[in-house]
Amino acid sequence: MSPTLLEAPPAGVRANGRTPPPARPTGGGDDHEGEPGPRRPVMANAQLATMFVIAAETMFFAGLIFSFLILRVGAAVWPPPLQPRLPLGMTAVNTLVLLASSAVMVRAVRALGAGDRAAVLARLGGAAGLGALFLTVQGFEWARLIRFGLTVSSGAYGATFYTLIGAHAAHVGFALTWLAVAWILAARGRVDARQPAALKACAMYWHFVVALWPVIWVSVYLV
């Protein structure tokens, strides 16, 4: 491997300085001759970390979804009488909107690989737009349900609905913020075909948030 991995930090990096040390991944191991050498890491730090964020978030949502299912299965009648039914048609369309944003995201990452910055920015914007549309539709649905009398305090039905859907919406909001940061990085050329990790990590998280939705939608709206 290239010996630069073992060199001193570049001049200008002071003790505990403003710029964090450019800690390069090495992933130590022996090289093919059995001598100690740096090894190419399987995955960039940012992507690896995002993978673990996704694992943690999965546990968070597993806690919510299983709790919901326990209450749902334990209830004699669901939805409880005199409570509004959840809108299926509109949210099904909204599910497709969110899934489409994931497809646009895939194409954005592909454009990054091809070095087409304009397409990257356009497609990232498209994915963000679809995500924002999803949230807006959801907001309208919530407003309608609240007008029909379904609130957080109307028993387990309302509590689980707003907690689960709200937790997901908050994650979509966070993912949108992350996407905006990735868009700025791409616009400034800080992310490109040679340094794609920041955008790829963002895409991983976006796909996770999108993939989470059908699971929640099926358990909350359909089951």
Partner: peptide, 12 residues
Amino acid sequence: VTTVINMRAPGM
């Protein structure tokens, strides 16, 4: 976790 997986010195 990231540091342990990706940041080990040569030979570690």
